[in-house]
Amino acid sequence: MKSRPYRIQFAAYVLAMMADNVEHVISYWVVFQKFHSPTLGGFAVLSHWLPFLLFSVAVGGLADRFDPRRIIQCGMLLFIVASAGWGIFFLTDSLQMWHAMLLLVIHGCAGVLWQTPNQLLLFDIVGPADLPSAVRLNAMARYLGILVGPAVGGVIMLGLGRSHGIILNTLFYLPMLLWLFRAPSSGKSATPRRFAVRGLADIVQTIRDIAKQPVLISMTWLAGLTSFMIGNAYHAQMPGFAGDLGHGDPGVSYSVLLAADAAGAVLAAIALESWGRLKPSPRTAIMLAILWSVTLLAFATVGIYGLAIALLFAAGFFELSFNTMAQALVQINAPADSRGRVVGLFNMAGLGMRAFSGLTVGVVGAGIGIHWSLGLSAALLFGLLLALYRRALKPS
């Protein structure tokens, strides 16, 4: 936070993440009221995460070849198009299901154009020495957006209505869009590089490139395993957990449980920044992920509301800790001439694989119950992470 460019980036990132969640609040509510379609709800999840699975490495390749600031601006423009599109359809009362699907896809593509280049921009702004701190604070900014976005979205929708409210939301993306015209760059990411963007071949080549680099391969495996087995799929099942806990109004209980998870993540960022003694290493990141899996296993089995809140708070703490540590390790150890592709591969594993966590927790939960599905997923993840930890202990 001593860096003025980083402070501006942090504030703009919070606003953009808040706008992302404001759009979710308003658009999901209207879509639910109009169509009452669980299928469309499932498509919303897929359209959000599949672009990360399909295009993260390609976008990382673009960021290796072109200025990442311009790629982020393209993402901000797509976010603005999506929010404005929702507003126009709401104003004219002409929204059809295919319109909603198209806007959801645009929103998902905007996200993948934003996240990987933004991580490269962080490296340029603060350098490798302060990168772990910048990654943690940006993760905190993401959770702040998740915490504040729904509240702001609700207030905007009540005060201005859904149509004008979501059009107003486009303004929250402008600080990031405009600041990027003057954002500093070390020149490493702004200089075109010799590699062309080759689609699937890039993914295969990047996997080959990191295969003999233990830190990169272990952190990519960590991101993929945690995202595939659980990811954030338990968030979508939180209304069911709140109802089963049977503590007062289910709507209030649901909100408190989600807030506990996000609050734990925010506290983790503050604590790790203040303490400064938890140095990034693959073993530490894997151990924090193991603690996360154990915490969620306990959450899946408890029936006491207060204990469930405490466990979700701890889960948020551990999740931010291992995710940000893994991300920082990948960015620091990635080769300079292919950093975008390596970070893109990490995001493909860490964000793209979340598209499948809905199967491991959600679809399976429909058959055996959400407590069993989350518990079994967490237990299996625990075993896989132990194997990954033992492998990390072996000398390279």
Rank of each mutant, 00 (worst) to 15 (best):
T116E: 00
T116A: 01
P117Y: 00
P117G: 00
N118D: 08
L120W: 04
L120Y: 08
F123H: 13
I125E: 05
V126C: 01
G127Q: 09
G127D: 02
G127M: 04
P128L: 05
A129H: 12
D130H: 13
L131P: 05
L131C: 06
S133D: 10
A134K: 01
A134Y: 08
R136K: 15
R136L: 15
L137Y: 03
N138Q: 13
N138C: 12
M140N: 06
R142L: 12
R142F: 07
Y143M: 10
L144I: 02
G145V: 05
I146N: 10
P150I: 00
P150T: 01
V155H: 00
M157L: 07
M157T: 07
L158F: 07
L160A: 11
L160V: 10
G161F: 13
R162L: 15
G165N: 03
I166T: 01
I166K: 02
I166S: 01
I166E: 00
I167H: 11
I167L: 13
F172R: 11
Y173E: 06
P175V: 13
P175F: 13
M176C: 03
M176Q: 10
L178Y: 02
L178W: 05
L178K: 06
L180T: 10
F181M: 09
R182L: 08
A183V: 01
S185P: 03
S186C: 06
S186L: 11
S186H: 03
G187W: 08
K188Y: 15
A190Q: 10
P192R: 00
P192C: 05
R194Y: 12
F195L: 10
A196F: 05
G199H: 06
L200Y: 14
A201R: 12
D202F: 12
T206N: 12
I210C: 02
P214C: 06
P214W: 10
P214I: 10
V215C: 00
V215H: 00
I217N: 07
I217L: 10
I217Q: 07
